[in-house]
Design a protein around this nucleic acid. Structure first.
Length: 729
DNA sequence: ATAGGGTTAG
């Protein structure tokens, strides 16, 4: 080993400037320095004994850091810094921290930072960037405050990261302070900093402030434009987002892939498939179709616009599993009624050990709610309660909703009770659940508890309460609650007004309902007129019902349901000529009655039946059971109302058809496939028809079973000859 | 020496 005295003096040379700062350390490390020199020789051809006094440690280590692909490499380099006594070189520490951040080793980056005694602005920027990059916003802000306590002034590189953190939390107050500071420090012309300010205000929902800052900018680049576009997209103004995009194109600014992601999101929100497709072709023209985040955005767009097949083919193009892509696909399936596909994909994810997050869990739970299978719901609950998502309140509110929609509001209550830190959505989900099942009293009791817990209700809470009152006949309570809304500063929406119309209509106050509609501060829509028509049908108020129907036809002339409701009103009032007229009207418009179907869950498997369905393998037994049920119904004095349904048949045929209604087939199948006393759970796509409703009531008594039917509108619990809906639906 | 904007959602 060449360790002559002359060599040692020469080795200390590169540290001259440092040794004046840290003289003692250099002396202490003399021996180690020699050892490290050998280390350097192993790595670098220029570290030989002839030119080492010119050796450039900065570039040597910078190179070494750049080529580090693991945390251990960085740790070795950092150890050498100590050995060589260069561990206080800001340049190298900055490099090291940035490298650690780029490897995702934020904890290690922080450790290096903490061992550094006197960080300059570069070092601060590196560590703050790390926290901001990985969405550790509180950490970024805490570091930023410490930086200022130590009198290190932020520069144009610090501020964008800090602004990202303020927007990410979001914390309006903090960001506004930073904005003030930016003004004082004179960064109003710095486009990087100002873009950060725009994005910050947009994320805090202060889109007007964002716009002011944006418009004051003299130079706007693609990032400035993107900040505005995404700002509008994030704040529920997709149309405005698209307008800004057009403006940007007119100014000749070329979008990059991130800009396009925001534009696609705006198209996704307006569900404008046509323009979305043209953006897709634009993406291809720009040669950006392989950009994975664009692929994700496009998949989400097609999925949300109902084109799940197209979405799936894009999804299949992605080679490496991506969490957000899977989430987009699962929620796309769930939203468009492909619930079984959504659940299949979720199970696929689990079996392939792809990481799930709380959004995945929420989407999967949402899908289960739509499937309506109680067994599946239990499976999902069981999975979630064993997973890391068990305490996530978003997931739990979805679970509450799921159980309620799968017919078991008591299980929903169990989830509700085990949810800690209930927020307004958790409370509302439970209240809506009780409402759906006509358990109005419990909904109101829960509302009391919610008030005692100091949780402020929102519009959904009131919607749940009003629905609960409707479904349980609590007319007085509902009326009072509606007038309570303004005390909480909540503006009633269409649905709330529709509930009140329903409420008044239920008790036969049809003229009052009409007056109420006429005095609404907003234009009455489909839900309101629909509620009035429905009430008119129950009370056989033909003239008012015709008026409501007219309004409905002008609002939605192709919605079959409105025609069927009017026809049912005429049938209830025994005005057969008008029933026929509606039928002619529908034929002229090319409309036909939606085909009814029912699903019944047997041993966790859903079986589907249509009207007069004979395709089931046990069809023969089913019809035998059906006949025996008919006999027992007749013996019990049941007389079917043969005219209340929209059919052009003679009486005998009609009676037969009514007995063949899909829910009857489902009930018959349920009775022969399950043990005595088992609850039957049925889901149907339309509202319950009056005949089947009366028949099911009686059947529940005759066979001594609880029968739970989820129709298009609500749940009916049939037991001992009565239904929880009180015959109003 | 270092940067900024985006996607899934009860």
């Amino acid at each position: 080993m060449a360790s002559s005295p002359s060599l040692l003096t020469k080795i200390s040379h590169p540290f001259h400037s440092l040794s004046s700062l840290y003289p003692t350390k250099i002396t202490l490390f003399d021996f180690a320095t020699v050892q490290s020199f050998n280390f350097l020789k192993n790595f670098s051809s220029n570290a030989d004994s002839t030119n080492f006094h010119n050796f450039n440690f900065d570039s040597f280590f910078a190179n070494l850091i750049d080529n580090s692909s693991q945390k251990t490499n960085l740790e070795q380099v950092h150890a050498k810094f100590f050995l060589l006594g260069i561990h206080q070189r800001g340049f190298l520490i900055t490099k090291l921290i940035n490298a650690a951040v780029n490897l995702g080793e934020i904890g290690y980056a922080r450790k290096v930072f903490d061992e550094f005694s006197d960080p300059d602005v570069f070092v601060w920027n590196a560590v703050i960037r790390g926290y901001s990059k990985y969405n550790l916003f509180a950490g970024a802000i805490e570091l930023y405050s410490r930086m200022q306590v130590l009198w290190v002034s932020p520069d144009g590189y610090t501020l964008p990261h800090v602004l990202k953190a303020c927007g990410g939390l979001p914390c309006l107050k903090m960001g506004q302070q930073v904005h003030g500071q930016i003004f004082r420090l004179g960064f109003e012309k710095d486009v990087f900093v100002q873009n950060g300010v725009v994005a910050f205000y947009a994320k805090c929902g202060k889109i007007a402030s964002a716009k002011v800052v944006f418009e004051r900018l003299e130079i706007r680049n693609v990032v400035s434009w993107t900040s505005m576009i995404s700002g509008y997209a994030q704040n529920g103004q997709p149309i405005e987002a698209l307008r800004i995009f057009d403006e940007m194109r007119e100014m000749g600014v070329m979008p990059d892939w991130i800009a396009l992601v925001s534009v696609i999101r705006a198209h996704t929100d307006v569900e404008d498939l046509e323009h979305g497709k043209s953006i897709h072709s634009f993406v291809i023209k720009m040669g950006l179709e392989l950009e994975s985040d664009l692929l994700i955005a496009l998949t989400a767009m097609y999925a949300k616009c109902g084109q799940v097949m197209v979405a799936r083919s894009l999804f299949n193009q992605m080679k490496v599993p991506n969490l957000i892509l899977w989430n987009a696909m699962i929620s796309g399936y769930a939203k468009n009624g492909y619930a079984d596909e959504a659940v299949k994909l979720f199970r696929d994810m689990i079996s392939r050990n792809i990481r799930t997050d709380s959004i995945t869990a929420r989407s999967a739970v949402l899908a289960c709610a739509q499937v309506g299978s109680f067994e599946l719901a239990r499976w999902m609950d069981n999975y979630i309660s064993k997973s890391e998502h068990r305490d996530d309140i978003f997931v739990n509110s979805a679970l509450i909703d799921m159980y309620a929609k799968c017919g078991n509001v008591d299980m929903a209550r169990i989830v509700f009770d085990r949810t800690l830190d209930k927020d307004v959505v958790v409370w509302s989900a439970m209240i809506v659940g009780y409402g759906l099942h006509g358990r109005g009293r419990e909904a109101l009791d829960l509302y009391q508890l919610m008030n005692q817990a100091g949780v402020h209700p929102n519009d959904v809470t009131f919607l749940g309460l009003l629905t609960a009152c409707n479904h349980s006949g609590l007319v007085e309570d509902g009326w009072k609650l509606f007038h309570c809304m303004k005390n909480y500063g909540i503006e009633p929406r269409h649905q709330h007004y529709a509930c009140v119309v329903d409420l008044l209509g239920r008790s036969g106050y049809l003229d009052q309902a009409y007056d109420f509609i006429m005095n609404m501060p907003i234009e009455p829509g489909v839900s309101v007129w629909g509620a009035l028509l429905s009430a008119c049908k129950i009370h056989r108020h033909v003239t008012l019902g015709e008026y409501a129907a007219e309004r409905l036809f002008s609002l939605e002339s192709y919605n079959t349901g409105h025609y069927v409701q009017l026809s049912n009103l005429y049938a209830y009032a025994r005005m057969w000529d008008r029933v026929a007229k509606v039928r002619v009207l529908m034929r002229e418009k090319g409309l036909s009655k939606d085909l009814g179907y029912s699903l019944i869950e047997i041993n966790g498997k859903l079986e589907a039946f249509r009207v007069g369905d004979k395709s089931h393998p046990r069809s023969k037994e089913i019809y035998e059971e059906l006949e025996s049920l008919e006999r027992r119904l007749k013996q019990a004095g049941f007389v079917p109302d043969t005219y209340s349904s929209l059919h052009d048949l003679n009486d005998e045929e009609m009676e037969e058809t009514l007995c063949n209604h899909s829910e009857r087939l489902a009930i018959a199948f349920g009775l022969i496939s399950t043990a005595q006393g088992t609850t039957l759970r049925i889901t149907k796509n339309l509202r319950a028809c009056i005949n089947c409703h009366s028949a099911t009531k009686l059947i529940s008594k005759l066979v001594n079973r609880e029968i739970i039917v989820r129709d298009a509108n609500r749940f009916h619990h049939f037991k001992d000859g009565v239904c929880s809906c009180g015959d109003y639906w």
